[in-house]
Simulated assay, not measured.
Amino acid sequence: MAVILIFPKSPVYVLPFSAFAGAAIIAVLLLLIARKKSIQPSSLALSGIALGAVCHAGMQYMMVKFPGDVNAALIWLTGSLWGRNWEEVKLLSPWLLVLLPIVCILIPKLDLMSLGDELAQGLGENANRLRFILIFTAVALAGSCVAVVGSIGFIGLLAPHIARRLAGEKAKYLLPASALIGAIILLIADTLGRGIMPPVEIPAGILTAVIGAPYFLYLLKFEARKQ
């Protein structure tokens, strides 16, 4: 958002780097929160939502302070595939070509990490180093995608939980299923957004939020029952 509004003449390839920087800052803050005590996934998600609200307030302030290209900023903020073409695919391709092989290499190690740090270290893995690499890769993938299509929320929450119910816990099935389901959710949201009120297009990010928010509440209730 800062690049779009404050430096509108910046080259387009700057966007993924700036989005990665913002994502990395928030990831570090979340890690600091998680290290203070044992924290449940739902609590970590709530912490992320709280930090997101602070960032959202900052973005709204920038739109008021630097209103020059506010239309582009609003489209990016809601998250949409409108106007996206092969140029954005080319912009995203270098990131995917570098990061997806890293994900494929690390898939077997994800199952080890799910057993806990002590057992993973007993089997010869450096848990802290591996966690850092995994988080860095996730942040880089999320940041680069957000730079291209905007902040389409709740896909990262919906897709893994649906995939876990369909594909099970093993990472070699869970990760590809999560990616496929996330893509399907995005395509459905975009298709509905184009077809509900033509010629007006509802941004995909709005529809994913409408679908995702009730599921998030269900997830919180489900975890509370488990506890």
Rank of each mutant, 00 (worst) to 15 (best):
E125N: 10
I25H: 05
L31I: 02
W82H: 13
W86N: 15
G48L: 01
I133K: 04
A127T: 15
L110P: 12
S38N: 11
L97V: 14
W95T: 12
D69G: 00
V139I: 07
L92K: 09
G116E: 01
R84W: 08
L110R: 04
N85Y: 02
R131V: 13
C104D: 01
W86F: 13
L106P: 00
V89K: 02
C104G: 02
M62N: 05
R84Y: 07
I75Y: 14
L32K: 07
M63E: 09
E88F: 11
L112S: 13
G83M: 10
V89Q: 01
G122W: 06
M63D: 10
A19N: 11
L110S: 01
M63T: 13
A45W: 09
I49V: 10
P94Y: 06
K36C: 00
P41W: 00
E88D: 13
L112D: 08
L110D: 03
D111G: 10
A21M: 12
S93Q: 11
V139M: 05
L81T: 11
L77S: 14
Q60L: 15
K90I: 06
L29C: 11
E125K: 02
F66S: 06
R131Q: 14
T78C: 06
L115I: 06
K90P: 05
V98H: 04
V54W: 02
V64W: 04
A138L: 10
K37N: 03
F20M: 15
F66K: 01
W76Q: 12
I133G: 00
D117R: 12
L112Y: 08
N126C: 09
I102K: 00
S80V: 08
V98M: 11
L115Q: 10
C55V: 14
M62W: 07
L97K: 13
W82V: 09
F132Y: 13
V139L: 08
A53L: 15
E88M: 08
R129D: 02
T78I: 04
S38E: 13
N85F: 01
L134E: 08
G68Y: 07
S38G: 10
W76V: 06
G58H: 09
G116T: 07
W86Q: 14
L91F: 06
M59C: 14
S93F: 13
K65R: 10
I33P: 03
F66A: 10
A21T: 07
L91D: 05
D69H: 07
A27F: 07
I135S: 04
I33Q: 04
K65V: 07
A138Q: 10
C55P: 03
N85Q: 01
S42H: 10
L96V: 05
M59R: 03
L97D: 07
I102S: 03
K90R: 13
S47R: 04
Q60G: 12
A138S: 15
L115F: 08
F132I: 15
F20R: 04
M63P: 03
L29T: 08
L32Q: 05
N85I: 00
K109I: 01
V89W: 05
L130A: 02
K65H: 08
I135D: 02
L97M: 15
L91A: 09
G52A: 11
I33A: 00
G116K: 02
L112Q: 06
A23Q: 06
